[in-house]
Structures are given as C-alpha cells and as structure tokens.
Design a protein around this nucleic acid. Structure first.
Length: 564
DNA sequence: TCAAATGGCGCC
DNA sequence: AAAGGGCGCCATTTGA
C-alpha cells in the first residue's frame, strides 16, 4: 500500500493507493500525529516528493517511518539514465516532462533554520497527492525503458538492478534525514582540549592562535622579510626570491625543498587547516547539545556517493575523531568495507584471475606477491592508478604489470575511459549513469580534432578528452561501490528498525558507517552490520563468480578514534 | 564592492 | 606523449 503525502496548499494531505499507484481513497488533510497513526496501523510505503523536504519535520515531531518511495531520488537516477543528469527532479518536473511542458527548476533545499516544523520549510513546486501518484506511475512506466541504453550511449542494465537501486536510494534518503536529525555524539570538552593542545588557548575573534603566530614569526625569520603564510601568492613569491622555482605551494611541493622556512610553513598549514575547518568556530556553529548535525544528501554526487552541506561531515580529520564519544552506557559500532574499490573492480569486470586474490583479507598484499615482488605499496599504488587513470609517475610505471596479469580487469576500466573520451555515458552496476560533458568540453575536443587545428589546440583537445576518460573510468568503480554501500545501508536500516529500534545510525561516509547503541545491544548490531554487508554483496553482484565478498569487521568502541 | 574563481587540503 | 577519480570548505585572489 502507498500513502501519498504532500503539501498542496496551506497544509499537508494524504491519499492512499495500491502498489500500482491507483488511488484507493480520498485526499485527507493530516498533521504529524495522523501520519504516525497511519504508520502504526497500516505501515504503508510513504510516497512523497522528497524525504529531504518532508521527513525532517516529521522526525522533529517524533514520527519515524519505515519505508518510502522518494520521487526525486528515483528521478535523479532515471533522468541520468536518459542522459539528462542535472535536469530538475521534483514531482512537478516529472509531470511537466511527461506532458511535454518545460520542467520547473528544483527548489534549493537549504537547511531549515528552525528544523522541526512539519508545516513549514522549503518545498518543491506544489504537488497534490494525486500528482505524486501520477508521477510514480510515470516513473514505473519509464523504468523498463530506462534499463535499456538511451540512444546506445550507456550500457544496458537489468531492470531488476535498477529497481534495487531505486529502492536503495529511497531508503538512503530516510537514513540521511534521520542521521541529520540525530547527529553524531560529540564531546565539546575533548575537542576543545585537542584544539588548545595543538593551537594554544582560543584566540580573540579575528586573531590567530598563539602557536600559529609563533610559526608565522619563524617563517618571517627564515625568509628574512615579512611573508603572509595565509597567502599562496605571497608564499610562492617568497620561495621564488629564495631561488626555488615552484609554481604551487602545496605541501608535497614544499617538502622537496631545502630551505629553513619549509618546516614552519608545513606546520603552519596543518594548524591553519585545523583552526579554520574544525576549530572553535566550527564547534560553536555545528555542535549542539552534544551532537554534530550536518545536512546529508543521499546520492547527492553524480557517482551516487553522498554529499553533505554544512560542517564538512565527510571530511572530519582523524585528529578530532577523539571527540566522537558514545553517550554513557552506549558504544559506537563502527565498520568499514576494506579495500572496497578494487573488490568492486573484480566484480564488475569479472576478472577471475584477480578474483582469486580476493579471498585474502589484504588484497594488496596478495597482489604484491603475484606481480610486485612482495612490495605491497607498489601493488596498491598500481591498483589505485588503474582505477583513477594514472599514466605517469610511480603509479604509471607500475601499471604494466597489471595489464599483463589482469587483462580482463584492465580492459574493463580502459573501455570505460574510451567511452568517456568519446563523450559517451557510462553506468554503475545497478545503472547509475554519468553526466554528459558540457558544450565547452565538446568545443575544445572538436577544435582539437579539426583538420586545421594548431598543435596547441590538438594537445588541449586530447587533454580535455582524456580528463573526461579518467572521470568515466573511475565512475564505473566509484559508482558501483556507492551502489553496494547504499544497499548495505538500506538492509542495515531495515534490520535495525525491526530488531534494535533504539539503535541510531549516526554516520555514513562512502564505505564506512557508525551505529550509536546501548552497550548491551552492541553484539547484536555488529552481527547485523556484517550480515547486511554480505547480503548487499549478493544483491548487487549476483553474478560474481564464486560469490563476492568484502571484509567488514565491525569494531565496538566508546570513541571513534579507537576504531580500526 | 561584490561574486566567482582559484589554491589548498581534509576525507573517501 | 602522457597531469590520478569524487567531494566541501576556507581564505585569498581576480575580475566585472
């Protein structure tokens, strides 16, 4: 049963329907309590424009829902399948396209200033429950066609795979809203201690911390004249005056130089990063009542990975993870998928020779023994280079071995790269599909290929084409990894909701997740985390020879920094 | 003077 | 011959 929930006028209303989207009742006005009642009595699949819009208000009102069908999450996948990634994805946009009208732009989903009001907040162009049902039917109708390749530009996928992806994207949207609502446990005192330990006491507004001031003095002394270490231009000029012809001041570049300013500059950069990105201001802005709340956007990245807005939740530096501490009587169950991307390469390419190594917990070590004289670092660098498109440098040197030993896997990523260089589309294993390169790309590439192109234009065209090839090469891996992770997350949420309802999924970062749970339930949760990882493997890679596995070993800790 | 672009670096 | 993928965020620089 479906329950279409929308705001189409002053308040919210709901209309029930069968699974095909055919209405089975009238449109009824509702408040949050009515939603809770319907959930308890009927447990429908809630059909809505976007969980990101509707669900936070319900959560704030204390209403938690089991399942949803999220029109915008589905549309993002479907529209990309049609080679039109980036076009509007709201219910109104779906219906407009169906009717051959121009699609209205999506409303920017700014984080609600006052989260919690079911009745307020941003909303995409108005939709009635009837609109939701019509859009849902339209999406169901398009699903079979979407599995096929649009104009031969993308690879066909199994309709069942696409259906799995859509379900996972809807569930992920629920998780994202719940995660934003719950937040990660965050100990402000511990974080403050980390900051004062490294930076000195909190400076007055607009001032630099004492330790950074001292380093800035050291830098000035080393150069013999004033230099603003916050200015890349200034810093580069100073090193050039000192006789080092550098064109950037990236840490890696500076490390190569023999000059007394290098050490204090590198130290300064590190502290500057901590101070500006995760310093006292960050604490004040993002941590409330012992929780760090960010806005998670499930599938917000073209490859299907999550994005966040605000707080930099997917870039929490290791040094401050010491501040992530479970509540009294609680623990954190933390798990990541070890070496996920090379294992995904094995599955999507069907390379059995490479797959034979996957039984090892440490795939890179096994690979090292096969072709890299036991040198794990080299094996790892080569494998990452293959998936990112490295051609030169150390990784480039090592790629030859992979080409020789694992032609099936290498051919898979090479083919993806060639498609990208031609401006064609690629898809993940479940059918998530890349965007098209823009007009600027085509102009540059076409100019380079023109008979009267200058050598410089030819080179620029080649570089531009190859850059897109690196993107599509990586897309088939990163996107498929995101597919697996989304299914993992969905399965875990399903099981936690049913079996350990008090457990809180509080963090998810590409291939890693964290559950905050009462100590007594930790073992149960850890078992579910591992079991759902295996289940996701079976669902996402059903054809993998000999089964597909990725080591997921949950650790139970009080503090995030102690995980692994 | 403001907004957009750039440089740099954190995470995966 | 050959420039490693995806992000978000901050401060500085650039340019309209």
């Amino acid at each position: 049963m479906l329950a279409a929930l929308s705001r189409s006028g002053p308040g919210w209303s709901v209309q029930c329907a069968d699974d095909a989207g055919v209405p089975s009742g009238a449109v009824v006005p509702v408040v949050a309590a009515d939603v809770a009642t319907l959930e308890r009595e009927q447990r429908p699949r809630w059909l809505w424009d976007a969980a990101a819009v509707v669900y936070p208000g319900l959560l704030a009102a204390g209403v938690r829902l089991h399942r949803c069908v999220d029109i915008t999450q589905h549309e993002r996948v479907l529209i990309a399948r049609a080679g039109r990634y980036g076009e509007p994805v709201s219910t109104a946009a779906v219906l407009a396209r169906r009717d051959g009208r121009p699609a209205p732009p999506d409303v920017a989903l700014a984080p609600a200033a006052e989260p919690g009001l079911f009745d307020d907040g941003p909303v995409n162009p108005a939709a009635t429950p009837g609109d939701l049902l019509a859009a849902h039917r339209d999406q169901q109708d398009r699903l079979a066609a979407a599995a096929g390749s649009p104009a031969g530009e993308a690879v066909d996928v199994d309709p069942a795979a696409l259906r799995l992806l859509l379900a996972a994207e809807s569930a992920s949207a629920l998780v994202a809203a719940e995660m934003g609502h719950l937040g990660m446990p965050w100990d402000v005192g511990v974080h403050s201690d980390i900051l004062s330990g490294l930076l000195g006491p909190r400076p007055a507004a607009g001032e630099r911390p004492a330790v950074m001031v001292r380093l800035a003095d050291d830098i000035r002394a080393a150069f013999g004249h004033p230099v603003n270490p916050d200015s890349a231009t200034d810093l580069r000029a100073a090193f050039r005056r000192a006789g080092f012809d550098i064109d950037s001041t990236r840490s890696w570049t500076l490390q190569q130089l023999d000059h007394p300013a290098v050490a204090p500059v590198l130290a300064y950069k590190e502290l500057h990063r901590l101070f500006t990105a995760n310093g006292w201001n960050w604490l004040q802005q993002w941590v409330r009542a012992g929780r760090f709340r960010a806005d998670y956007v499930a599938g917000g990245v073209v490859s299907g990975r999550w994005a966040t807005r605000g707080g930099g939740a997917l870039q929490i530096p290791k040094v401050v993870r010491r501040a992530v501490i479970a509540d009294p009587g609680h623990v954190l169950v933390v798990a990541d998928a070890a070496q996920l991307e090379p294992r995904v390469l094995i599955a999507v390419s069907g390379d059995e020779r490479l797959g034979a190594l996957a039984a090892a917990d440490d795939l890179y070590a096994a690979l090292a023994d096969v072709g890299f004289a036991g040198r794990r670092e080299n094996a790892k660098m080569a494998m990452l280079g293959a998936m990112y498109g490295a051609t030169s440098g150390a990784a480039g040197q090592l790629l030859g071995t992979l080409f020789q030993q694992f032609p099936v896997a290498m051919d898979h990523v090479e083919r993806a790269a060639r498609r990208g260089e031609q401006g064609r589309l690629v898809s993940s294993v479940l059918g998530r599909t890349s965007n098209r390169p823009g007009p600027q790309w085509w102009a540059t590439v076409d100019r380079g290929a023109a008979p009267d192109a200058s050598p410089a234009e030819e080179q620029r065209g080649r570089q531009t084409a190859r850059a897109w090839g690196r993107f599509t090469r990586n897309f088939v891996i990163q996107g498929s990894a995101a597919d697996w992770a989304a299914v993992w997350l969905s399965c875990l949420r399903r099981d936690l909701t049913a079996q350990v309802p008090a457990a809180e999924l509080v963090f998810f970062q590409h291939d890693e997740l964290m559950v905050h749970v009462a100590e007594a339930d930790a073992g149960h949760v850890a078992a579910l985390v591992a079991a759902t990882a295996a289940e996701a493997g079976r669902l996402v890679f059903p054809h993998a020879a000999g089964g597909w596995r990725v080591p997921v070993r949950p650790t139970v800790v009080r503090c995030y920094a102690d995980a692994k």
